[in-house]
Design a protein around this nucleic acid. Structure first.
Length: 274
DNA sequence: CCTGAAACCTGTCTGC
DNA sequence: TGCAGACAGGTTTCAG
């Protein structure tokens, strides 16, 4: 799934029990079960089980695209990559599904299941989350990030905006959808070099990033491809996967190009290259 | 430092 | 119907 709004939607559901799921905060781990070895990035099934058994979920949150599950003395970090998903269910009422990769059973009969068809997803167990999250850039929605700082960060690099915005060490949370949407809203061509934009443009870009992320969260994320996850932001894309269709602003035909091996959608009229 | 290509995976869709 | 090829919300690693 997962860009910032989708991960945010998911963690809110796990935290508050929205969308019919049960909140997992306060639950005590009975045991864990690993079904695809490489899902664990930095430990083994045996060690995971030993370290998590008896631990109680203290909180669940998000940093960039990571789901952060905090236990008494351990933190479990989950990255959904392209196709990962999490669900909570009553173990005795449910069957494991085809692409389930990791299961955490709780004492009260509920379980948290990580499902991931493409097997790109990874989980880390650590006592110091900064060890894994330390390289991430700012949270785009964090008001501590000012327009002036963002402008300086852009000026300090010489990279194509599309690629730079996808770089999680520059800014944490944008993916292919929201980057294309933000660049269109900001009227900036994806190949614009980061050091070439002026103060007004960088301010507009950060505003656009925040606007599309907020809209995505408000719509509970986007559900695309064959995986339906409840959100409906996919019905409001301005350019993403709309190549050949009219730009919602000027009516010109949306184009698709490849930038850094990623499909990139933009309006050739609204988003001129300097 | 920057770009591009390949790798990691399974599933869906399109076109012949 | 079958099959090849393109493509998919991400990240890492390596070459130039």
């Amino acid at each position: 799934m997962p860009e910032l709004p989708e991960v945010e939607t998911l963690t809110r559901a796990l935290h508050c029990g929205k969308n019919g799921s049960c909140p997992i905060v306060g639950k005590k781990v009975a045991q864990t079960h690993l079904l695809w070895k490489r899902t664990l990035a930095n430990t083994t099934e045996r060690k995971l089980n030993k370290r998590l058994m008896g631990q109680i979920v203290q909180s669940i949150g998000r940093r960039g695209k990571f789901v952060v599950i905090t236990f008494n003395q351990e933190t479990l970090l989950i990255h959904l990559r392209m196709s990962g998903d999490l669900r909570v269910e009553i173990a005795s009422n449910s069957l494991l599904q085809k692409h389930d990769r990791l299961v955490i059973d709780f004492m009260d009969g509920y379980r948290l299941v990580f499902n991931d068809p493409r097997k790109f997803g990874r989980t880390w167990l650590t006592e110091d989350p900064q060890e894994i999250l330390g390289n991430l850039g700012s949270e785009p929605l964090d008001s501590h990030l000012t327009y002036a700082q963002f402008h300086q960060k852009l000026k300090g690099r010489k990279r194509q905006l599309k690629s730079l915005l996808l770089d999680q060490s520059f800014l944490a949370g944008l993916g292919n959808i929201y980057t294309d949407e933000a660049l269109h809203l900001a009227c900036l061509h994806p190949l614009t070099l980061s050091n070439s934009i002026n103060e007004e443009q960088s301010k507009g870009l950060l505003k656009a990033i925040r606007a599309v992320l907020k809209e995505g969260i408000q719509r509970n994320g986007a559900s695309i491809d064959w995986v339906y996850r409840g959100g409906d932001f996919q019905n409001h894309f301005r350019v993403y996967q709309r190549d050949g269709q009219p730009c919602p602003v000027c009516g010109a035909t949306i184009e698709r190009i490849l930038v850094g091996q990623r499909s990139t959608h933009f309006c050739p009229i609204c988003q001129k290259l300097n």
